[in-house]
Amino acid sequence: MSEETYTFRIQRNTPTGNGRFDTRWQEFKVTLPTTSTVLSALEEIKARQDGTLTFRQSCRSAICGSCAMRISGRTRLACKTQVGSVARDKVIEVGPQTNQPVLKDLAIDIRPFFERVRRVDPFLKDGPESAKKVTKTAYDQVNQVTQCIMCGCCYSDCTMAEVSPAFLGPAALAKSFRFVSDPREGMKTERLEFLSQPDNMWSCSRCTMCVEVCPKDVKPMEAIVKLRTRGLEKGLRSGVGARHALAFHEDIQQNGDLNEFTLMMRSVGLGGTLAELGSALHLMKKGKIPSPFPHKAEKLGELRKIYDILEKNPLDVETKAAEIVPE
């Protein structure tokens, strides 16, 4: 096994009271096999170079979710990341998760993250929509999202959470899908109604960052898309997000292009559009407002073909439950 000497550039955050921090970057040199994990490097530094270096860790096997931190520009589990795979010119930069308050060095305050998870009522509920019997494939939808270990990588790198702290976030939404897609769950519609409210499932911008950074292949954004599909199927179409999606769909299907002017009207209504008038005038000055008249894309037939394929292969959002049989 080949060894290398790596430079770890680590963000140190020392609490100085009243939620303030003395933040600085400190470098440590460590010689390790290239296949060692970032966590073992941090442990080596803590044991032999600087006992004050603070980070959370526990299982060392990517199942407890303690050691999520920013490593070379992405939030990753330190125990699952090999040093050789993230070093740039033998330098590895390590910092705390973002979008969340720091406690000390690489340890963040995990309470706001779990507060968001609590908001989705993260437990199975009895109710009118509970199936009485499950089949072999009953958990095909559930199994993807129950891989989640609540490490927070997705939330730390979520581009929407960065600009909108009120956003529920990918982990909480994936957790919600875990129940909505469970045949035994009795309150699926009630959950979808909650998720249709502002800052919940319609606030995701579908940037796919959460899918990319998730160390457990949970694919939170896919769960969010499935939740939206189910919401629309249940007739939950009155929120801004749903209306925007439907208007978008209508434009593309008919014209192959968007009419931003009417799209706005259809999404947020007349009041909402008027409220945005200031921004609109600003945009107009810069020449950013397209023509308010309908305009069509060329080769609409090609588009029709895409729609045909999508309609023949719909997104699989079905919960696989047996027929509800009276006991």
Binding site: I63, C64, S66, I149
Partner: peptide, 11 residues
């Protein structure tokens, strides 16, 4: 001493 979900039962 650790969040419940970090407990080693998970392993």
């Amino acid at each position: 001493k650790i969040h419940p979900l970090r407990s080693h039962s998970c392993a």
